[in-house]
Amino acid sequence: MKKLHSIPARRLLLATILALLPATALAQAPWQWQMSLKIETAGNAMYMPAAVAFDRESERYYAVDAGRNRLVSFTRDGEMLKAFSADDRLKAPFDLVRLDDGRLWVVEKGRNSLTRIDIGAREVKPHILRDGSRQVFPDRIAQEGGRLHVLDRASGQVLRLAADLNVEQRFGSPDTAGGLADFVIADGSVWGLEARAKKVFRFRSDGSIAQTIQLGEQVDFPVSLAVGDSGLYVLDRHQNSVFAFSEDGRFRYRFLGPGHARGQLHFPRQIRFDPWGRLCVVDEGNGRVEIYTR
């Protein structure tokens, strides 16, 4: 015990504590920056990217460059391949999915359409959706087994579409005041984020709610969610942070913060898991997609 009072012993104790501190923080947030999807050419950087999508088969990323009305493809290693604007016909593209047959479905906010793009056939076909008597305002899009799911901003519901694009199922929060702000399909379930009530819902295929997760007060302005093997991740646009929860809603940790440097976000827009288990954060204000691995 006496030895601890000696100066070398105290220094050793201090060094041990300092060495352990980063390790503890690392255990709290196990995500490491791996790469950025961005365009390095001066003056040609992505401007306000809104979404990221994936092609598992050909190992590609697609970033939706909303500000420059184009879609940008990258290799799995982050090398930029092509920028595609459909002959300048895209208007404020916002989200996309790629089907197994290679066709793209793009949400275009500029024409309020769900636009089918067949690159091989050079065909771009916008569709204005309706749900009964009301117009649909597409926002986010996902697919499962070739069936499109679209988030309708006006009703705040996720709509599952039949092959003819008619609505065949709705997934919505029971609270009429607020609607879903984002959704993903994971483990065969639709997961929806209700931003104002700060809740996450897991829906059954018939639209009923199987699980409700109340996010804590630490979340301020949630805009997007991702669901993976390691739990639930919620992106907070105003705090520029990712909040990690267990699947039963227990808060685990948060990581990333505001700014423009690596590991910092500026008005982030979307969070998704890629097919290889990496966490992708669409960093709208910094014009890039940040990719993290565990």
Binding site: A92, K109, G110, R153, A154, A177
Partner: peptide, 14 residues
């Protein structure tokens, strides 16, 4: 018809 808009669910009419 913009990439960011305030078209949010509020009952039947945002």
């Amino acid at each position: 018809a913009s990439s960011h808009n305030h078209l949010v669910r509020y009952g039947e009419n945002s």
